[in-house]
Design a protein around this nucleic acid. Structure first.
Lengths: 199, 199
DNA sequence: AAGGTATGGATAGTGGGACTAGCCACTATC
DNA sequence: GATAGTGGCTAGTCCCACTATCCATACCTT
């Protein structure tokens, strides 16, 4: 981690400035190091932008924010913002999402960024046109519930707010990367079994 | 979709050139349109780079490639390349990954990009230091298996190679986005139930 | 005390990625 | 027969994550 990069992070508000011991000497402590690791994890592994990391950091450092709100903020920071014009496919997709939420009894706000993102993705699958994804969606939703329970269970054993809050962030962001990798491995395995020899 | 952008894609080798009906008039057909939708889906929803999309397109259009190989190519194109120096944490993480693969009986090559990515992500979680992720990993792997089976099942009903191959790509790439969104929704729900009022 | 090295702070520059604009010769269309 | 649009080309733009350069100062060694 080069010094210029750290300077850059400080300027960007990702990292608090070191404590000045003299006009040209600042000391960085354990918390700085920890924070730096968090930043690198979010940037490299989580693939967040610097701006998104700043959002997340601000949320973490806001002591008035409830854990539930924090998770919401982190989730929003993570979801890519699609600014595609509304078309016919999106309407159908939104209905599909609403139906799923209702069927599962999930407590999520209607205008939620995640459900918007889901609608966009479903519309894209539909446009690409290779048959209905509906059946698969159920399996995905089952898996997502399972994963979410594991996530929150993992987080729960941290009692101190500081710790808890960082766990939430790490779990949410890096969890995505972990799951993607696992999915790809499982796909490789399944595909090997199905198509390993033929086709 | 603006004309300059299409020109750009043609230059970049994502899209075949239209058939010239006269020196300055090319006609684009149904397949072009379809291909364009695929490109936009991979770029926007899948978040791939133009270079990665080119890789994928080349793989799709290579009739000598088996479906299994194709899936491998797509998966590699998707996995971000981490070029972080090997450190102590990585070694542990790799062992953890190897153990997981063994325990699951997954048929994946050892040097696999996905398992490398998994190791990096696990190392990052570990470095961030909020308790062992091991238990959660099992739940993730279960979920990943379930999702992979659903994916491949969805793909399987396409008999024509063309269709099959595009389904694989779409499912792999956009499936990631879909699952992420679902996970976030399920997390929101679970967190609402756990922390909705307090903390 | 002197000189080399490093730091904090600030401004400006770099390199990569994804388009986008401008130009030219030409042609389809009104 | 003017207008507007196109293929093919090069060059430019914008954004983003960093880097490099500068300066005055201060630590560190001798």
């Amino acid at each position: 981690m080069s010094i210029p990069t750290i300077k850059f992070y400080v300027r960007e508000g990702l990292l608090p400035a070191g404590e000045l011991t003299s006009p040209n000497q600042a000391s960085y402590g354990e918390t700085h190091e920890q924070r730096l690791r968090l930043i690198r994890a979010l940037l490299d592994v989580g693939g967040l932008s610097v701006a998104a990391v700043r959002e997340v950091i601000l949320a973490i450092d806001d002591p008035d924010r409830s854990v539930h709100k924090l998770l919401g903020t982190v989730a929003s920071g993570l979801v890519p913002r699609y600014d595609r014009e509304p078309n016919a496919g999106m309407e159908d997709a939104r209905k599909q999402v609403a139906a799923l939420i209702a069927a599962r009894g999930w407590r999520v706000q209607p205008g939620n960024p995640a459900s918007e993102a889901l609608a966009v993705a479903l519309a894209a699958v539909d446009e690409a046109g290779h048959g209905s994804f509906a059946g698969v969606l159920e399996a995905y939703a089952d898996a997502a519930e399972r994963v979410a329970r594991a996530d929150l269970g993992w987080v729960a054993h941290n009692l101190a707010r500081e710790e808890l809050v960082e766990s939430v962030v790490v779990g949410t962001v890096i969890g995505d990367a972990i799951f993607s990798a696992l999915r790809r491995m499982a796909q490789t395995d399944t595909s090997d079994r199905m198509y390993g020899q033929a086709t």
